[in-house]
Design a protein around this nucleic acid. Sequence first.
DNA 1: TGGAAGTGTCATAGG
DNA 2: GGCCTATGACACTTC
Length: 521
Amino acid sequence: MSLTFTLSRKQSRDIVRHFIVLVSYIRQDVDLGVERDIFDGCLRQREEETTRARERELKRERELERIMQRLQKLDKETGEFLPSPSSVNSQAVPLSESLLSTVFTQRSPVTQNPLLSALLFSQKSQKPPSQEQAFSELLSLPDLQYYLDVLESEASSLPLDDITEICHQNLPEPQRENSTDALCGITQTISDSFEVAQPLSSIPSDPVEILETCIQMFSDPRNPTPSPSNTIYSCSTPENQVILPKCQINSSDSTLSEFCPYTINTSSLSKPEQLNRAPQTLLQFEECHILLGFDDSASVGSVDLEPSLYAADTLSNGQSDKDELESILSDYTDLLPLSLHSEAVEATLCETVTGAAEVRRVCRDEQRVQAMSLPFGVHDIINLPVEAFNETISSCKLNHTQHSLIRDIRRRGKNKMAAQSCRKRKMNSLTDLEEEIEDLKREKEQIKEENEKNTRELHETKVKLRKLYNEVFRQLRDEHENSYNPREYKLQHSTDGTVYLLSRRTADKTNTPTEDLPIAV
DNA sequence: TGGAAGTGTCATAGG
DNA sequence: GGCCTATGACACTTC
């Protein structure tokens, strides 16, 4: 099980630049005080978060001042006019916009890298912002500015080690202590690892294709699989392979590999060094993470990638269909941003990619499950049949807390699905009732029209009958050829069809035809 | 900024 | 009595 990409020097610079953009915006987001929304109902925690937000706000203001100073300095050096409001405004851009907008520019390494851009921007609704806006936002990052400048100007001739050293020397003292070290750490890691083997142009641009490619690689029997549940990326050859552990928020696992699933070739290292390289890489990135001001204590969002991997295995075994693929892709794109170990990025990208509330809930439950070191995931806890579930939890020796947690997760998950189905039923019922109302209205209109029609026909029939009645009376003659007076006589229709001429006086008294008077017409 | 819509969760009734 | 499902009510978020 391995995923292998090797890089040219230019591509490596692009990747470094890409990491810088991402890391810088993580930092920017934290500095901006963009908070991850965690609902726990605990007032004390809210107060603490409020205090933390104030501190972030103060830090953000200091950062803004530094940015303005840096921008002015840049103007003097380049002789170009850089409108300062853009950088200031960019500080107000939420990370969900600023991060995406920046890395989605045409010249962004992310967009130049189809794999990364496809994974990060799988949502069609995310439109790329203008390049100008993104560039202005990029310029708002002083550390990044230095680093990119060096990359642009000297990277073609200098080793990456020297680049990091230049960055380190050029930055002011306080910032050396922060981001530059971390960035240089990343650079050092990547600089050890480039070798051209497969052009990036061969990487598919479509996320589904990317996933399929990954699945094929994961399931390729030619690739060794040291530990499927703990490995996502490894290198091309056994000699040069560095196994990058699966990304997990709560442990010192690979963040780098999540964003850069390329080969880290350590052929120049000895075997022990090779074995140590991955932890070093991760450690460096962890240091970067910490030094850049990320708040680990508030990090939320432990994510288990195993379901996706298992599903990928299922796919590779030919048991897949399009829905499964889409589901897995969704999981994959959902989980990808969570590996940043940053609550800000996690929250923002979670909300960007999927429904925020559900993702947060899943993240919290996943975190709890992982914190308890439970051997199964939230999905299993919720969706296993009762018997299988009871069998599973009985087979594991769980303490009371673990048992309660699992029961709680299962109860809430079940109830959540029940609520969803209940609401769906309610909506369907409402829709059916509305349709029934419309049908009844239509039926009422039809009956009304029919009634009017019948009324009209009845009226016409009465008119005809009156005319006929009068005509009959007009033609009736007695034995003396005299006509009958309609006021004294009337016609009455019997059930057998016979029409009688009745005297009104007699008919009114007896209400029946008399023997002498009836005259059949 | 208020309101509508959506969602998760809890409490409760009923099977 | 315990478990599950359905549903009303509430809180919260997002638009």
